[in-house]
Structures are given as structure tokens and as C-alpha cells.
Amino acid sequence: MSGAGCTFGGSDLYADKSQAVGADGGADSGSEATAGGDGSDNSLPDVSGTWAQRWVVGSIDTMPVIGDVQASTKSLMRVQVEQRGADLLMRVETCLVEVDSGTEIIQEVIPDAFVASLGISVRAVWLERQGSRYRFVQPRAYELRGVRLLDVAGEALPTSAQDPRVYDQDVDGRPGVTVRVTGLVDGEVWVAQRDSHEVEGEVVSLDRIEGRIRWLKEQAILGADNPLLESPLPSVPDPNPDRSTMVMVRTSEDMQCAGIVAQEAELFGEQGGGG
């Protein structure tokens, strides 16, 4: 791509990738990402490169004994973005998943094996001009965990560990994927999950993209080593859209998952995960 005549806030969009956030971090907003005055496509911001991404999805979980609690799940990811015009291809490696159960009494822990089993997923995204700004649009996508379905979106999740569609994704000897519960009740729950999510955001600057997430999560319990955990816990997305957010910040090419986890505060500029 040529950067001739294409500027965000007066700077060369394509030449200025040196503003990537390095290890010494700081979510420097850099140049403001606005469309050029002529409205041509070649005014698109160049967002290709390596990013750190943080998702926080808020939910209302109904816990036994406790009742409704505001919970949230934070995910940190390393994203490599390829850009062809307005189309983006994102290769997403999940680095960390943390659940804030909203209560000290029961906490959900996502084992590292679960995270490692997620591998690298590919997401198609595009940029869409809206006035002087660019929207970041990630259409609804589905992710399956611990189960293989022919109809990813419409097929009901299996509820038995013996169902042939169930597999041991995190290779821990248990069906599906394993989620750990600690606190007043503790144990492991083996589940099949289907997540669907769509993101609508904005390219805030060359180095930062922010958005909101609309998501749904289905979970079928395949087994547990504590009978109290065999009953599903109702969980619905928090109707407050501000509790389900996405932030991407550009990083250096060589920043790996461990660095993103270690420098989360510096990268994203504020504490996340609390919903």
C-alpha cells in the first residue's frame, strides 16, 4: 500500500508503525485515527501488525445460595493483524482467561491447560468508515470448546460425556474442557461450550482500538467431581453494554503472550477484569 496522501491527523498512516507500544509501554493514544477529507478508501488506517487485546465480558450469574452476582471474564490475547484494504484477518492467540465470579464465596478458575488448548483462532474483521472515523466491525463468530458440531451455530450441545461429538480438548483425561471451581464449593466441572460474539468498535488511533462486545455463551455440563457442581448455573450477558468491552493496543512484534500478561496494566492503562 502506498501511504501517499493518506494521513490520520496529519501524519503518515502507513509509515508510522514506529509508534507501536513497546515493552516500556504506555497506551499512548498516538495519532488520532480519522478519515481524510477526500473520503477515499486509501485513507484507511493501517492496523496491520501485532496487538495485545483485552476482552472483558460482563454477565449476571445466578449462584446457588448467593443469588445473582455480577461476574466478568477477562481474556488477554495476542493478535496478529493482516490487512487488505478494509478487511482484516486476525490470528488470535489466547494468553489468559480470568473469571471474576463477583463473590469471594465461589470462584471459577480457568486452568492453563484450558487456555493452551484454545490454540490460535482466525477472525475476519473489517473497517468501516463512519464520518470522520473508522468503525471496527467483527461479525458474529462462533467458538466451540470440547465439542465438534457439524452445525456450529444451530446444533444443540451434547449433554453426555459419552456423546461422540465430545472430545478431551485440553487433554487432561476428562471430557470436554475443564473448569475449576474453588471456594465454598470446589471441584472440577467438565463442560462443552459454545461462544458467539460480535464486536463493534472504533479505531481510536493507530495504536488503539476500542469496542463493545455482544456475546452469548452456552455451556453443557458433562460431569463434575463434586455433585454440587453438576447443576448448570444460569448466566446471561449483563445488559449494561459498558461491562462487555474490547481494547486492542499495538505492541512490538516480539511481544509474546507472557509479556502481554506481565505488562497488562502498562499496555491497557487501567485495571481490567472487574467488569
Partner: peptide
């Protein structure tokens, strides 16, 4: 988690 044979664990 108590370590069992075959890489599995239990409460």
C-alpha cells in the same frame, strides 16, 4: 488437585 496416574487429577 491430587495427582493421579495418567495425568489426571482429582479433588
Amino acid at each position: 488437585r491430587e495427582q493421579l496416574g495418567g495425568g489426571t487429577t482429582r479433588r
